[in-house]
Write a protein that binds this DNA or RNA. Structure first.
Lengths: 165, 165
DNA sequence: GCTAAAACCTTTGATAGCTAATGATCGGCG
DNA sequence: CGCCGATCATTAGCTATCAAAGGTTTTAGC
């Protein structure tokens, strides 16, 4: 596959001789993220769940009735993203949104019964993705991976607070 | 921060007692990816480059005159993504698209002079992101991280080929 | 040499995500 | 009370991404 001459008639200019940073941590993380995302997607799609809904479902399975702000924090998304995801979930009958009686700025999001029942079907899918991803890796290596990734995030969080730009 | 009662008037149902998988490899990789993506974005934005253009610039700095198919492979994006990204880059005067004389199905993408000159400004930004991300990590730990991520990707690629469904 | 398959690019239509600006409500303080 | 700043949600407008389907050109097989 792909091996043929693909550029006859177009002059190429080879500027350097190797990929200097296809080996960078950034690239590694990016590609791994895509692979994981895709693996999750194919497993939840048969249940009519999109990746965009997944993290909100996770949060609500954990604690039902959260506000949109709280959901944004737990899912790690910006608030407009949360708004549109929740609308989609409402249309699909996964959640109901109720206005908070004590503070009418807030809404509380509750799972419907079918959405609660999806938990037992979907959490195993997530576990399966992680199992597949870590097959053949000793537990120590997985722990080391998580520890290192945590350090990387901490590094980026502090440079961000200091003088990025 | 964030510690106040935020749900007065909305009944919450605590369904389980802990985050069973906020510790999963999937979550770790997802959040790290976001942090890296964001760090890169703030550094290239001042030059008028969006993250969507970045990987194509990288590929073309490496080898100019690639076809769109080749660019898709190197950037790791689907072809429609490549089409729209290149149109945006053309509008910004970063690339010109020429029809291949020997094979009229193909187009070859060439960087403009300003885009070539951006290389010396932007590559240091990418290096800086990686440097920031790995500050304080011994080289052996970084190598281990990359090795493990590579294994994870390999795992996912094979389960994909087999019976994902 | 003709036709069918493959290769390449594009369009269409959908999801996901962000920043910035707007709207609505609440709370504190004078 | 009454206003003003903070808080919560939404809208507007943009970038990024993909799968599926379509159009054109080339290649391969007979």
């Amino acid at each position: 596959m792909a091996g043929r001459r693909t550029n006859a008639g177009g002059r190429k200019r080879k500027m350097r001789f190797s990929y200097p940073a296809e080996q960078s941590v950034g690239h590694q993380v990016r590609w791994t993220h895509r692979a994981l995302q895709r693996a999750l997607e194919v497993r939840i799609r048969p249940y009519g769940i999109t990746p965009g809904m997944w993290y909100f479902l996770r949060a609500l399975w954990e604690e039902d009735g959260l506000s949109q702000r709280e959901l944004s924090e737990r899912a790690g998304t910006a608030e407009p993203t949360t708004v549109t995801a929740l609308h989609a979930m409402e249309r699909r009958g996964l959640v109901v949104r109720t206005q908070n009686k004590d503070d009418r700025r807030k809404s509380n999001i509750y799972l419907t019964k079918p959405a609660r029942e999806l938990r037992e079907l979907l959490l195993p899918q997530a576990r399966e993705v992680n199992r597949a991803a870590t097959t053949g890796l000793p537990a120590a290596e997985i722990e080391a991976l998580k520890r290192t990734l945590t350090k990387v995030r901490a590094n980026l969080a502090t440079t961000r607070r200091k003088g990025a730009r």
